[in-house]
Amino acid sequence: MTPGLFAKFNRVGAWVLLLFLVTPALIAIPVSLTPKRFLSMPKGELSLRHFEKLFTSEEWLSSFFQSGVIAVSTSLLATFLGTLCAIGLWRVSSKYSELVRAFLLLPLIIPQIISAMAFYRLWIPLGLLDSYAGLILAHTILAAPMVLITVSASLATFDPRLEQASKNLGASNWTTMRRVILPSIKPGVFAGALFAFILSWDEIVVTLFISKYSVYTLPRRMWNGIRENTDPTVAAAAVVLIAITLIAFVIFSIMSRRSAKSEAPEGGNK
């Protein structure tokens, strides 16, 4: 279709909408620079005192640390389990395995409040409330489907004859997995690990239910700050989070561009 008046108008509208999606978050930047002790827009004078507080406060630092530990552990565990599972499902690929795949994706789509209830319910008798293990396990179950999706997407483009060839040449299952399958699905594995990390790093609803005092993640502390709605340190934390998001995004873009490039010549040879 030739771009008519409507299409042009729509394109402008789409740009406005896309800017509407991104710009509101930027207000955290000026608010974080206010010299006042309460949440406000700075007038004239700027100050970095809230960033100073963020990076010297024991509470905020421990939250950064705890969130980091939990997100890294979740990412490793979810990536390990999710990758294995994706390869298994890909190998089996029967009616039942597709059912299992659909089932395993459920934690991603079932409302988080229900997941939170479920974990809360089970973590009480298991004594996992308010512990690292409890949070890591819960986040892993929520994040593993992400890994399953990204790895499965990579496997979809993997030529199963390569696996056959490797086995015919005498490689064991384990060797085939390590030297043939894993290297070719690396982009999917890394993407899955990154998504799992972000999910855990940013998770609040389940965390609200299953953590209390001893584990106090960053989202949890931000949630408190937002509810109290006075301390500008929250704004500084928000700015740091935006920065981390952008860095992660750039890394991800570079990675996926690189993997697209490395795939391109192969495609050309076919």
């Binding site: 896309l18 999606l21 991104v22 509101p24 978050a25 930027l26 207000i27 955290a28 608010v31 949440l39 972000i198 940013d202 609040i204 989202p219 931000m222 949630w223 937002i226 709605n229 929250v234 704004a235 928000a238 989070l241 935006i242 998001t245 992660a248 995004f249």
Partner: peptide, 15 residues
């Protein structure tokens, strides 16, 4: 926008 934390966005709307 997809990647920006839900808490950051909610905080921004509050402001």
């Amino acid at each position: 926008s997809f990647w920006i934390s839900i808490l950051v966005r909610t905080f921004s709307w509050l402001m």
